[in-house]
Simulated assay, not measured.
Amino acid sequence: EGAGEDPYLGSLIAAAQVRGFQGDTLFSEETIIACLKHFIAYGAAEAGRDYNTVDISEGTLRNVYLPPFKAGIDAGAGSVMNSFNVYQGV
């Protein structure tokens, strides 16, 4: 679902992809809006099943899953797609 297990590398790649897709302006015919997906922890769904619950610690969520999303948002991503899993009962 991402660029690997290393949050730092994943963050660098996420930012580079956003800049590559969106360029300097979305008004150019050569650019496309970047969409970060699937937010959040979609890749950690139990049994790898879509729409399933996610059993993940707060530390893993913040230190492994969130950094690439933050990097993409900081790079100016124009869109984020949510996931459809249950996280902490919600």
Score class of each variant (00 low, 15 high):
1 E>T: 12
4 G>A: 03
4 G>V: 00
4 G>E: 00
5 E>M: 10
6 D>G: 07
6 D>T: 05
6 D>H: 09
8 Y>D: 12
9 L>F: 13
9 L>A: 14
10 G>Q: 01
11 S>E: 00
11 S>M: 01
11 S>D: 01
12 L>Y: 10
13 I>R: 05
18 V>F: 06
20 G>W: 09
23 G>E: 06
23 G>Q: 10
25 T>V: 06
25 T>M: 09
25 T>W: 05
26 L>K: 09
27 F>W: 12
27 F>Y: 14
27 F>E: 13
28 S>R: 11
29 E>I: 04
31 T>R: 12
31 T>S: 10
31 T>F: 02
33 I>K: 05
33 I>E: 09
35 C>V: 14
37 K>A: 14
38 H>Y: 06
38 H>Q: 13
41 A>T: 07
46 E>G: 10
49 R>P: 00
49 R>K: 15
51 Y>Q: 12
54 V>C: 13
55 D>C: 05
56 I>A: 11
57 S>L: 08
58 E>C: 12
58 E>P: 06
59 G>K: 15
59 G>M: 13
60 T>V: 08
60 T>P: 00
61 L>Y: 13
62 R>A: 09
63 N>M: 08
63 N>A: 12
63 N>T: 07
65 Y>R: 00
67 P>M: 02
67 P>C: 02
68 P>L: 01
69 F>I: 03
70 K>M: 12
71 A>R: 02
71 A>W: 01
72 G>A: 04
72 G>L: 07
72 G>I: 03
72 G>M: 02
73 I>F: 12
75 A>P: 01
77 A>T: 15
78 G>S: 10
78 G>E: 02
79 S>T: 13
79 S>K: 13
80 V>Q: 06
81 M>P: 10
82 N>M: 15
82 N>D: 11
83 S>R: 07
84 F>E: 04
84 F>S: 11
84 F>P: 03
85 N>G: 15
85 N>K: 01
85 N>I: 02
86 V>A: 11
87 Y>L: 14
88 Q>S: 11
88 Q>D: 13
88 Q>C: 03
